[in-house]
Design a protein around this nucleic acid. Structure first.
Length: 491
RNA sequence: GGUCCCUUCGUCUAGUGGCCUAGGACACAGCCCUUUCAAGGCUGCGGCACGGGUUCGACUCCCGUAGGGACUACCA
């Protein structure tokens, strides 16, 4: 069996869309599963809308998600160049070939003429495609048009009554009749190739074996098949994968919120979670597994298991999944991924060891990487809100609250700094518990509040461990002082 | 309008004629765990679009109907 070669071919007219990313992902997964080649090709034949910035953004997003390509811009390869704007001479050559063989012809119709034609056809309820007005122009007519300075396009001469069968890898046989298609444009009047023409020339020359693409292209495929036939060349396999929809069931777009991959990255989604979620949109490992790491996805991926129906993008589930990754990934991974989100103005992270300690607590309370700053407030005096609200004061209406904190401070002062880990911290508190018969909420709440000025948040022991001896004691002392002062003012 | 595609809980999905009283996950509700908030565990809520066939037997096969979507460009 010949080598599997697939491609992802975005047009650089904006960011990498979530839907595009999923298409890229399925191509990439398929290539890696088959030990094939993943080609990245930039389809920048739309002179108006294509930009280099957009290309950069797309490549960056691809890299972020970990989809590496074997051939493409920056990487090169044997079938380059990989930007369509750099392949113009190639398209020209192949256009010439079709023209020479009479399989394509020049059309001098103006936009206005075509619009009018289409309008009339629409009113009569007739076929709206190009009807072939310029199909059989004589040499003289062509010369005359040229003399008038009219621009021309190149159109494919489509055979009548031809059956076009696509054997789709995801959905089986799809039949079309050539009569449903007008002679479509291959080369635009600006000399640039049209989408379908460039795609076919490139896929053919780049020896693409499988075209995996969104099913919104399903009606483009028969056109491409006709072109392959015109070139007398082998037609690749096709797999049309379902689209991704917004929560209202329509095509995913800006009004559904974030749709660009980098937006998700910036919002604090981890790349592995994003890839995991995307891979489960239209594909299933066929067991009850939800969290599935990419290596295993590669192993199990197959086009036959791709569903045929569109999937609604569900942010809530992605969030849940992101939380799973934050809580369960390697600490080193978490440190790497979360670091860019830490507000450096507010928080000076001493070192990696300290951050790891803090993250051990913080990760339990995070859904997005951006949640880190909210979690970090507990550990820094600069940002901690030290307001004594009613809830806090209420806890210290009980005398026992003061006993707990005061006694614990005393005991901690006698505890060596390197003993600030779970067992010693617990044992010291136990003594207080037993001596004063204070337990449960009455025991822990005062301490938590003294350490964090909050009735919710990290557990007491982890908090002490992260703050360390000196800082813990200072904080509690300061707190007790403030409460006493507040109480005396009231009295 | 035409052509094509799609249709299992609100959402993502498992299901390839009997294993289905339709399984899992997110969300939601309740309970448990617990020093708080989370996390975690358990339970519940909730679905085969509809109508005809085929068959001893249909979520599964066929045909209609309805609904949704895509395309119908010198945009990709």
């Amino acid at each position: 069996m010949s080598q599997v070669r697939v491609r992802f071919a975005p047009s650089p007219t904006g960011f990498l869309h979530i839907g595009g990313a999923r298409t890229a992902l399925f191509n990439w997964l398929f290539a890696r599963n088959k030990k094939g080649i993943f080609v990245l090709r930039i389809e920048d034949t739309d002179q108006e809308r294509s930009t280099k910035e957009s290309e950069d953004v797309i490549l960056r997003a691809m890299k972020w998600l970990g989809m590496d390509w074997d051939e493409g811009p920056e990487t090169g390869g044997d079938y380059g160049p990989y930007r369509q704007s750099e392949r113009l001479n190639i398209y020209k050559e192949y256009a010439q070939r079709l023209l020479g063989e009479g399989k394509a012809y020049r059309c001098f119709c103006t936009q206005e003429e075509l619009d009018l034609q289409r309008q009339e056809a629409k009113e009569k309820g007739e076929f709206q495609g190009y009807t072939g007005k310029c199909r059989d122009l004589t040499e003289d007519q062509i010369k005359e048009y040229e003399a008038q300075g009219r621009k021309s396009v190149l159109r494919l001469r489509i055979n009548e009554d031809e059956e076009i069968v696509i054997n789709d890898l995801c959905r089986g046989m799809i039949n079309f009749s050539s009569n449903e298609f007008g002679d479509f444009v291959l080369v635009k009047s600006d000399g640039f190739p049209s989408y379908n023409f460039a795609v076919v020339v490139d896929d053919m020359l780049m020896k693409i074996s499988h075209v995996i693409i969104g099913d919104d292209h399903i009606t483009n495929t028969p056109r491409q098949v006709m072109l392959y036939k015109a070139f007398n060349t082998k037609v690749p396999e096709f797999a049309h994968i379902p689209m991704i929809l917004g929560n209202d069931g329509s095509r995913l777009s800006k009004r559904h919120g974030a749709t660009s991959v980098e937006e998700y990255r910036d919002q604090g989604y981890m790349k592995d979670a994003t890839v995991n979620y995307l891979s489960l949109l239209g594909w299933s490992p066929k067991n009850d597994q939800e969290i599935i790491e990419v290596d295993e996805t590669i192993k199990r991926f197959s086009l036959e298991d791709v569903s045929r129906s569109p999937a609604v993008f569900d942010n809530t589930k992605l969030k849940w999944m992101n939380g799973q990754y934050i809580r369960n990934c390697e600490m080193d991974t978490l440190i790497t991924e979360v670091s860019p989100f830490i507000d450096k103005e507010k928080y000076e992270i001493e070192n990696k060891e300290w951050l790891a300690k803090a993250l051990k607590i913080a990760r339990e309370h995070m859904t997005l990487l951006t949640d880190i700053n909210e979690q970090l407030t507990y550990f820094f005096d600069k940002t901690l809100d030290k307001t004594l609200n009613e809830e806090i004061l209420k806890i210290f209406e009980k005398e026992s609250a003061f006993i707990v904190v005061d006694e614990y401070i005393k005991r901690l002062e006698d505890l060596e700094a390197d003993k600030f880990y779970y067992e010693p911290l617990r044992d010291n508190l136990k003594v207080i518990m037993n001596e004063h018969n204070i337990k449960g909420k009455d025991l822990f709440m005062p301490l938590r509040v003294a350490l964090t000025y909050s009735t919710s948040g990290p557990g007491v022991y982890p908090m002490l461990q992260v703050l360390g001896k000196e800082h813990s004691i200072d904080r509690m002392k300061e707190f007790v002082q403030k409460v006493r002062k507040s109480n005396s003012l009231e009295a």
